[in-house]
Simulated scan of single mutants.
Amino acid sequence: MTTTRTSTITRRSFRGAALALVTGAGIALTPVAASANAGGPAPVASAPVALAAAPVVAPNSAAQVAVDTALAQQGKPYVWGGTGPGGYDCSGLTYSAYQAAGVSIPRTSRAQSTAGVPVAKADLQPGDLIFFYDPVGHVGMYIGNGQMVHSSTYGNPVAVVPVDSMWGYNTARRVV
């Protein structure tokens, strides 16, 4: 009898590629809780279910274009000094996203942290820029629901992450 064996590396590579594809398409994987069903068949263990991410609704059209542009870059590599389209650093992503919206902001994260008006963390709206560290050394764009899109560091592509997963919150600014 012949046995086909799939290597752990192949399975991991496939799993990672599938996760990248699902994440890049804006689909979130969430577990579904089993519910008790008195008198019915025994519940089956739940598997993650793909749910479409809620659409981002920005407060104005320029912020909407910036958010949509930044989100469209998910999966592209971090490139120091990069302003796209092949790769981005943190401020290059926000700079390019707002440039696509017809809004001029400075190029570096530190300079961007002086643009627009200050916003309290509790009042963030999609399109607001969020700054980290002291002195400022990183920027992301708030997209709603406690999440931001950013290009964090070499080896990590542009991605959506919870704002609170980043340490060193400094301030936030609204540029439109």
Rank of each mutant, 00 (worst) to 15 (best):
I130P: 07
K121M: 14
V67E: 00
Y95V: 02
V79A: 03
K121I: 14
W80Q: 08
W80K: 04
A101I: 01
A54E: 14
V136F: 06
Q112S: 07
S113L: 09
W80A: 10
R110F: 13
H138W: 07
N145D: 14
Y78F: 14
G144T: 03
L71K: 02
I143S: 01
G140Q: 05
Q74V: 12
T69M: 01
A115K: 07
G86I: 04
V79G: 06
G81V: 03
A54C: 06
P59R: 08
H138G: 04
T108M: 03
P77T: 05
G84F: 01
G146W: 11
A120L: 14
Y133H: 15
T114K: 10
G75C: 09
D128L: 12
Y95Q: 04
P126N: 05
S91I: 01
L129D: 08
M148D: 05
A58V: 03
S61H: 13
A101S: 05
V65T: 14
Q125P: 12
Q112C: 06
P126E: 07
G116C: 11
M148G: 04
L51Q: 15
D89K: 03
Y142T: 10
T94V: 05
S104A: 15
P59M: 07
G127E: 06
Q74E: 11
A54P: 13
G86D: 15
S109W: 03
G127H: 11
V67N: 01
I143C: 04
P48Y: 13
D134L: 13
I105M: 02
S113M: 08
S113N: 09
A50C: 12
V79K: 08
A62M: 03
L129V: 09
G140Y: 01
T94L: 02
P85D: 04
G137Q: 11
P59K: 08
V79L: 13
T94S: 04
G140M: 01
M148E: 12
F131V: 10
P126W: 02
V139N: 00
S61Q: 14
G75D: 09
G137K: 08
